[in-house]
Design a protein around this nucleic acid. Structure first.
Length: 274
DNA sequence: ATGGCCTAGTTGCTAGGA
């Protein structure tokens, strides 16, 4: 089973590119972030025609997350329990997390021993700047997700997405540039450590040392390899033991019309071992 | 080889991104 995560920066602009990538890489499940559209604007028909079922949540041009699967999709949740709301006046729970079980509905394995996986497509708040209300929201949001994830750690669960945090100094091209900035601050890194403390392992790093997942559109960031590792894959023990390999498709950042993020791909054993 | 912001919307500017 091949499962990937990709912040596509507008699904309507890049549906053809995403579908071509799914076909070319033979990917079964994709967690998508930043669809930037309402659900009625999502290109459902294009994905269905390609054999993928779609679960998506989006309310306007901001945020928006989805999971598409050609191996079945069940028990969709469009937010996690106690997901924080944000906004002046009437706070809203933004479309930043979507959960679904992919593969066989049975997480413990069906009669043939094939087991499904619980996948969450995660788009953490950006934070904007230290001390900004968005920054406090980001920390609260990640903390609440860690708490919710604690309850899922006993099942094969993958938390995939754009976390907007670089866990280590080496995850940005020049840590000096980030002095006093978001994405590298201690509280943000502590928030990701809370996810690990809740029973998860970040499984992409050991397969992709020194690689980035994001390059800004500005200032020749990609040719200069001024990138960041902010798209991460956290796995519960039952999911982590099924990880065969993780790879980052850096080629997707080349040329015109790309997202500023590239796919992170997880190759999983089809069923639990043992 | 990758190349000098991009996307969406009560659109010709503003908001948001990181």
């Amino acid at each position: 089973m091949r499962i990937a995560t990709w912040n596509v920066n507008s699904i309507r602009t890049r549906a053809d590119r995403v579908l071509a990538w799914l076909d070319r890489t033979d990917t079964d499940v994709l967690a998508i972030q930043e669809t930037k559209c309402r659900d009625d604007q999502f290109p459902h028909l294009l994905f269905e025609a390609a054999g993928y079922e779609v679960a998506h949540t989006g309310i306007n041009q901001w945020n928006g997350v989805a999971i598409v699967s050609r191996m079945g999709i069940h028990d969709v949740e469009t937010a996690f329990p106690s997901q924080p709301a944000f906004g002046r006046g009437e706070p809203v729970v933004e479309p930043r997390a979507l959960g679904a079980t992919v593969g066989p509905a049975a997480l413990g394995g069906d009669a043939s021993g094939n087991a499904g996986v619980r996948v969450w497509s995660v788009y953490a708040p950006n934070g904007r700047a230290l001390g900004d209300p968005h920054y406090d929201y980001k920390l609260a949001w990640l903390g609440a997700l860690a708490e919710a994830a604690r309850g899922w750690a006993g099942e094969p669960t993958l938390l995939l997405g754009d976390w907007n945090v670089a866990p280590l100094d080496e995850d940005v091209w020049d840590i000096e540039v980030f002095a006093g900035a978001t994405h590298v601050s201690e509280p943000e890194r502590a928030a990701l450590a809370q996810v690990e403390a809740a029973g998860y392992e970040e499984v992409s790093r050991r397969f992709t040392p020194g690689e980035y997942t994001y390059w800004d559109y500005q200032q020749l960031a990609f040719p200069r390899n001024n990138g960041m590792r902010i798209d991460l894959a956290f796995a519960s023990p039952a999911a982590a033991e099924r990880v065969r390999r993780v790879w980052i498709d850096r080629d997707e950042r080349k040329g015109k019309g790309t997202s500023d993020h590239v796919p992170v791909v997880i190759d999983l054993e089809p069923a639990a071992r043992g």
